[in-house]
Design a protein around this nucleic acid. Sequence first.
RNA 1: GGGCACGUAGCUCAGCGGGAGAGCACUACCUUGACAUGGUAGGGGUCACAGGUUCGAUCCCUGUCGUGCCCACCA
Length: 961
Amino acid sequence: MPAANAMIEKNYQPADIESRMSLVWEDARAFSAGRPDRRDAEPFTIVIPPPNVTGSLHMGHALNNTLQDILCRFERMRGRDVLWQPGTDHAGIATQMVVERQLMERQQPSRREMGREKFLARVWEWKDESGGTIINQLKRLGASCDWSRERFTMDEGLSKAVVKVFVELHRAGLIYKDKRLVNWDPKLLTAISDLEVQQVELKGNLWYLRYPLEGRTFSPDDPTSFIVVATTRPETMLGDTAVAVHPDDERYQHLIGKRVILPLVGREIPIVADTYSDPEKGTGAVKITPAHDFNDFEVGRRHGLAQISVLDKEACLNLVGNEDYMRDLPEGSEEFAREFHGIERFAARKKIVERLETFGFLERIEPNTHMVPHGDRSGVVIEPYLTDQWYVDAKTLAQPAIAAVRSGTTTFVPKNWEKTYFDWMENIQPWCISRQLWWGHQIPAWYGPDGKVFVAETEEEAVGHAIGYYVEQEVITPEQGREMALDRNKRAGFITRDEDVLDTWFSSALWPFSTLGWPDDAPEVKRYYPTNVLVTGFDIIFFWVARMMMMGLHFMGEVPFSTVYIHALVRDEKGAKMSKSKGNVIDPLALIDEYGADALRFTLAAMAAQGRDIKLSSQRVEGYRNFATKLWNACRFAEMNDCAMPDGFDAAKAKETLNRWIAHEAAAATREVTEAIEAYRFNDAAGAIYRFVWNVYCDWYLELAKPVLTGPESRAKAETQAMVAWARDEILKLLHPFMPFITEALWETTARRDGLLALTPWPHRTDVPTVEEIAALSAASFADPLVPPLLISFDAASFKDEAAEAEIGWVVDLVTAIRSVRAEMNIPPATLMPLVLVGTSAETKERAPRWTDVIKRLARLSDISFADGAPEGSAQLVVRGEVAALPLKGVVDLAAERARLTKEIAKADADIERVDKKLGNPNFVAKAAEEVVEEEREKREAALARKAKFQEALARLAGVG
RNA sequence: GGGCACGUAGCUCAGCGGGAGAGCACUACCUUGACAUGGUAGGGGUCACAGGUUCGAUCCCUGUCGUGCCCACCA
C-alpha cells in the first residue's frame, strides 16, 4: 500500500486549494470531451449559455454554471463522455455601447469619425483585452468545461454558419426584407426586436383634440363643426391620414365618408369606418397615424391610407423636404413646417399642444397612466418607425418547434414553462433581425445599381448573380459582364454590401451546432448533437431557447436538446432582477474570495429549488463554508487515526454492526443524492449529502467509532479504520459535483492516489430497488436508448441492514435522551452519572455491553448497570419502549424531575387523545387505508406504554419525596 | 387586460393528503484527545384569510386579501 501523502493542513484554506486544483485538472485534461478512455461511452453534452465576451461573472452566471457543472461532473463520474461546450457571445449592442462610451470618456474620435473599419478594429482590441475575464471567472467557479473547445460567436467557423443559415433561409423564403413599422431606438439609431422592448408604466395625459369637419365653419362652441379624438401622442397628429370610427357607432354614422381638416397642417383626411375603433375608449373616434403606430399601420393598410412619417431617425420632427408630408398641403404650409422642423419629439409635443390650444383645437386634457415602450439597452422611449429591415418568418419555423415540445421530444423542467413557451410561440411575430450597428455579423446581402438585392455566401458569388441578372435585364452587355467577371477592378463598386449586422441572438440560435463545427462535416456534430440538457434562466426562453429550437430543427432536423432545465433568477434583496444597468448586482467573486467557490456553489445548489427565485444571503454562504471546514476536519480525524482501506477491501463484507450501519446509511445517501440530481432537484441532493456528512458521519459514526479507533489493535479496529476511510471516500464522491475543489484536494491527500476524483466512478446504488423501480427503469431504458441500463444498475451486494439500523438507532436514541434529561436537570457536563437499565429485554442486554464505552463517553456517564427496578429517586427515561434510569438523589431537586415527568405524561396524553379521536371516528376506520389505521393503533399502543412508564416513575418518585 | 408564481419559525427558504422542517439568528451550558468556521440541549409557527372536497387539509379545489414576475397595440 502506498504511503500516505502529505498530512492534511491544520486549516482549511479555500483559496490555496482552489487555484491548485484548477491546475491539476487542467494538466490532466480532465474535462476534455472524447478522452481515449471514453470513446465507447455514451456522450453527455451541454452547451453553455454563452456569456457576453466583455462581461464579468454575476450571480446569475454563478448559479447557471454551478448547476451545469453539477450535471457534468455527475455524468462524468457516471462514466459518460462529457462535453460541456464553452464559449462567449459578441453581444452586439452591449459591446458596441461599451466601446463607444470608452471612446467618449477618453475623448477619442467617435465611432462615426473613426469609420467602420477602424472602429471594428478597436472593438476587437477591447474583446482581446477583456474577453478572458469571464472565462477565468468561470474557471474560478470550478466550471468543468472542455476549455480547449472554447468558441466565440464571431469566430470564423461560427460566422460561416451564420452566413450559411442566412442564405439558406433567404433562399427558402424564410428570410425577407420588408418595409414596415419596427421598434426603433432613437438613441442607438437601430431597429430592435419586440423582445428588446420593455413596457414601462408612465403617467401621461390623454389629449382630446377637435378636428374640424370639412365644409363647416370651425367654432369651439359648435360641437357639430368638429369631431373629437383622444390621443396620448399629440405630436404624431402631423402624420395623421384618417380618423376612424366604429362602423356601428351611431354617434358617428353621419360622418363616415366625410373629411376633416387636420389642424395646424391643413391636410384633408377621411373619416373611415373600422372595427379597430372602440366606442368605449376615448371619444370613440380615433386618429389614425399609420407611420407611427402599429395598430394604425394595419388600419391604414385596410383603407389604403398614406403613411406619413413625420419624425426622423433621431425622433425629431422632419417636415421640410419631407415629400410625404408636403404632398397635398394647402398654400402657406411651408411656414408651419419650417417653424416646427427639427424639434425633438417631446418638445414638439409641448409646442404642438400649445399651438392647438391657441386655436381652440384642444378640448381638454385628462391624466392617463399607460404603458410606454422603452429600449432595454438605451432606456429611451421606442418609436414605431417606418424602415426597410430584414425579417425571419418565425411563424413558419415555429411550427416544428411547437410540435417537438408537444410530443415530448424536448421537455421543460419544471414543466409549467412549457405553457409560457407555447403561448409565445403560437403568437409569434416576424423576427426583425437587422440592426443598424457595426459590431456583429454583417448581413450577406449586396445591392445592385438599382437597389436589387443579391444574397450570397460571398461577395464573389453575389457579383456573379448580379452580373447574370443585369445582363439578362440588358442593363449591361454580355461583353461588359464577361469583363467584370474576369477583372476585379472593373466590377469594383458595382454592387455594395448591406451595412447592417444581424441581431446577436441570430448567431446564438445556432450555438448548439455551430460550436460543434457545423456546417463543416465535423465528427463532433454527429457525436454530440443533439445535446442532452440546456440549463438556463426563464428570462431567455424567448430570446434564446425558442430560437435554438427553431434553427436546430430546421437545419439539423433534430431538436437541439432533449431537456430544458429552467432555473430561478437570482434577484436582489428587493426581488428585482439584477442587471448591470440597474447597478444592483452582487459580485460572486467577492463571495468566492471570502468563503471559497465550493461554499458559494453549495449555497446556490441548496437554494435552487424548482420554481422559486433566489435571494442570496452571505450568511448562508458562510454556513456552507463551515460545512466544508467540518468535512476537512473529519478527514483530518480519519488520517490521524490511520484510516485507510487495504487493497481489495470490500465494504459489503464488514462484520461490525457500526460498520454495517454506516454502509447502510451511505447507501441510502447515495440513493437520495443520485435520484435528486437525476430529477434536477439540486436542493434535495445538496440537503441529502449535507445531512449525511454532518448528522450521520460526523455526529454519530465517527463519535461511535472513537473508542474502537483509540483502543488496542484488533480485527474490529482494522475493519473500522478501513470503513472510516471507505465512507469518507463515498462522501467525497457524492459531494464532488457540488464542492469539487475541497473534495478533489482531500481525495488527493487521503485516497489511493491512482487518479483524479473528477474521473472516479460514481458510487453505485447499493440498496435494493423496489419492483416498481425495476419496472420503471427497464421501461425507461427500453424507451430511451440514451439511458444505458448499465449506468443505473444496482449492486448485487446489498448494504441494507435493518438489524444494524435498529441497534445503532437504539444507541443514538439512548444517548440523546440522556443528554436531554441532563440538560433539563441542569447537570453540568463535568458530573459523571451512573445509568441503570431497568428491566431490559434480552436483546438490549445482549447489545448494551458492545456500546458501554461509547455511551459512557457521549452521555457523560460513570457506569452502566442493570436492575429490575429503578433506584430510588432517579430520573427515568423511556427509550424504544424500555426504561433507563439516572439516579439523581442529591444531584438535583426532585421537584424539577416531577415537573418533567408530568410534562412527559401530558405529552403522551395529548398523543393518545389525538389518536383516539381518529380511531373513534367510524368513518376513519372504515375508509382510511388499512396500513394508516394500523399505524394509528401502533402509535396509540406506544403512547400508552410511554405514559405508563412515566406514571410509574412519578409514583416511585412520590414515594421517595 | 391575459398569464404564471408566491404568502410556512425573527431572517432566508425547504416540504407536504395522515403526528410542522433546515440554515442563520436567539437562549443556556461546554476550551471532552478532528473541528469554537466546533459540541450539547432548548425556545420559537391556529403553515395569509374564508369557504369547499375528504374519514382526515399546511398540502387538493374555489374565492378574498397581499407580494412579485411575464405577456399584451389599445386612443
